[in-house]
Every structure is written in structure tokens, then in C-alpha cells.
């Protein structure tokens, strides 16, 4: 094994882990607060990717500089997350908070089916490519290996920004502390006058926006095509479960772990590429059923 391959593996892992983290952190945040696992979360990743790629292609069609793509990506992500996510929470999820758990799962699964289909209706089944933002930032050379700056510098920076931004938001702002209060003790929070409905709404659109941001930022690095949402929901679940559902900081470490695991598989056992993330999850959960950073809760009897 040469040093170069090792370095390449690490860089791939970091690039990939950063993207997965963006999506997984939204999933885990929503779960932590609302106790609902949004199976349609992967669809927001796909919608974000499609929206960003389409906007990018419009830019290049009009010959506008691809530098505008970066702010447009954020606009696209927020537009998708807030509009689709907001509608979903307001008109569907709100009706099922008191229903049985398996029904909640089914509802988000149904929305997943719907959004997956909508995607194909709007964008068809042909892959989309919009890679200019990737090449625009140029390459960096690390230990003799050239790698795109977008993937090894920009994406990890965004992931770190989101990680620390989210922690700051939850700890230091009013809206954030309301979310924390509802997460820790919903009944007590409601009793002192916190509007749990608003908190849920806010949390949910933050979660979906993070997923679509992940998709938007991923779009220059990959071909945007049907099925990417389904793959991402299980992958981000694997990250969230490995970390312990609801653990934000833990999700970053788990994403890196799974990213590195996957990139090593690509180089050393390519057939097992898809299996490795789940293998990591299964091994972790066999030894720590509550995840690496989750807390066990004994039931009072």
C-alpha cells in the first residue's frame, strides 16, 4: 500500500463524510426534537441537488459566471427546505404526532414515495451534470496528490461551520434554547408556555434545509440522478444511528468514520463499497445499541 493511496483514501473519506454529515445532522436534529424519523429526508437531499444543478445549468446557458452558483446553491437549498419541508410539517406531520409510531414511519415513507416520483416527473431519469463550481476553486496538492479544493477544503469547512453554528444556535440563541427545552422535557416546556408547535415547525425546516443544502453542495461532485435520495436516507440513518440518534456532535465523528470506511473500501474491496457503511453501523450497534454517543435510558417500573 503506497502512501499516495492512503492519502487519497483519507481525502476521499473527508470529502464524502462532510457531505453525509450535512444530511445526517438534519435527520438527527429532527429526530432528537420531534422523535420522528423522517424517511423522506433523503428526498430533500435529492431535491436540493436537482434544484442546484438546474439553476447552475441556467447560469451557464446565459453565460453568467459560476461564482454566482455558490450563493445560488444556498438560496436553492433554503427554498426547497423551507417550502417543501414547511408544507410537509404544516399539513401532514402535524396530524400524526399523537399517532402510533409505526404509522408515523409509514406517513413519512409515503411522502418519500411521492417526492421520489415528483422528482422523476420534473427532472426525468437522465442524469444532470453541473461541475463548474468544482473546477472553479481549483486544485490543492496534498503530499503530492492533487485534489479539488472544493471537496477537501470547502466542503469540510461548510460541515464544520454547520456543526459549530448549530451548537452555537442551540446554546446561545432564544430559538435554540426553546428547541433544547422542548427536546429535554416537552411537557414541562409546554407548561411554561413554550409553543411546541412552532418549535417543531422551526426544527423541521432547519432539518430539511440542511438535507437540501447537502444535496446542493453535492451536485457538482456527482451526477444527479434518480435513486440518490433512497441511498442517502439509509446512509444518513447509518451515520445518525452509529452516533446515537439525536447526537449532533457525534454525527460528525460517525460521518467521518463512515466516510473513511467507505473510501477505504473503494480502494481495497470495491465490491463491498456499499456494504461497508452498514457494516460499521452493525458492528457499533452490536456492542453499543444506543450508538457511540447515545445515552441508555432505563424505563422506570
Amino acid at each position: 500500500m503506497s502512501l499516495q493511496i492512503l492519502v487519497l483514501t483519507v481525502l476521499d473519506g473527508i470529502a464524502y463524510g462532510s457531505l453525509v454529515f450535512l444530511v445526517a445532522v438534519g435527520l438527527t436534529l429532527v429526530f432528537g426534537v420531534m422523535r420522528i424519523l423522517n424517511v423522506a429526508h433523503g428526498s430533500f437531499y435529492a431535491l436540493g441537488a436537482y434544484a442546484a444543478a438546474s439553476l447552475g445549468l441556467v447560469l451557464s446557458a446565459y453565460g453568467i459566471s459560476a461564482w454566482f452558483a455558490y450563493p445560488l446553491f444556498i438560496v436553492a437549498a433554503v427554498a426547497v427546505g423551507v417550502s417543501v419541508g414547511g408544507l410537509m410539517e404544516r399539513f401532514i406531520l402535524r396530524r400524526i404526532y399523537v399517532r402510533e409510531e409505526y404509522l408515523q414511519l409509514l406517513v413519512t415513507f409515503a411522502i418519500f414515495m411521492i417526492l421520489d416520483n415528483v422528482q422523476r416527473l420534473v427532472w426525468g431519469v437522465q442524469p444532470y451534470f453541473y461541475t463548474e463550481p468544482l473546477s472553479l476553486m481549483g486544485n490543492v496538492t496534498i503530499v503530492g496528490i492533487p485534489y479539488t479544493a472544493y471537496q477537501v477544503i470547502f466542503l469540510p469547512l461548510v460541515a464544520l461551520f454547520i456543526l459549530f453554528g448549530l451548537r452555537w444556535f442551540l446554546r446561545k440563541t432564544l430559538a435554540g434554547s426553546l428547541i433544547v427545552a422542548v427536546t429535554e422535557d416537552r411537557e414541562a416546556a409546554t407548561a411554561i408556555g413554550i409553543n411546541a408547535r412552532k418549535v417543531f415547525f422551526l426544527t423541521f425546516i432547519i432539518g430539511t434545509t440542511l438535507a437540501s443544502l447537502g444535496g446542493a453542495l453535492a451536485s457538482p461532485t456527482t451526477s444527479v440522478l434518480p435513486g440518490m435520495g433512497a441511498e442517502m436516507i439509509v446512509l444518513s440513518f447509518a451515520v445518525a444511528a452509529t452516533a446515537g440518534l439525536g447526537q449532533i456532535g457525534g454525527a460528525a465523528i460517525a460521518a467521518l468514520l463512515i466516510g473513511l470506511g467507505r473510501s477505504s473500501a473503494v480502494f481495497f474491496m470495491p465490491e463491498l463499497e456499499v456494504v461497508v457503511p452498514y457494516l460499521i453501523m452493525v458492528i457499533v450497534l452490536l456492542f453499543r445499541p444506543e450508538g457511540l454517543f447515545g445515552k441508555t435510558t432505563a424505563r422506570k417500573i
Partner: peptide, 20 residues
């Protein structure tokens, strides 16, 4: 044909919300 999955999803939602 093109909206098969969409239809399934919608029907599923309606059943769960109104005729569980």
C-alpha cells in the same frame, strides 16, 4: 404510468389519515 408511485403514496397517506 408515470405517477404510479405518487398515486400509491397519496393513497397510503389518505388511508392512514382517514381509514387506518
Amino acid at each position: 404510468g408515470d405517477t404510479w408511485q405518487l398515486t400509491l403514496g397519496l393513497v397510503l397517506l389518505v388511508i392512514i389519515l382517514f381509514a387506518p
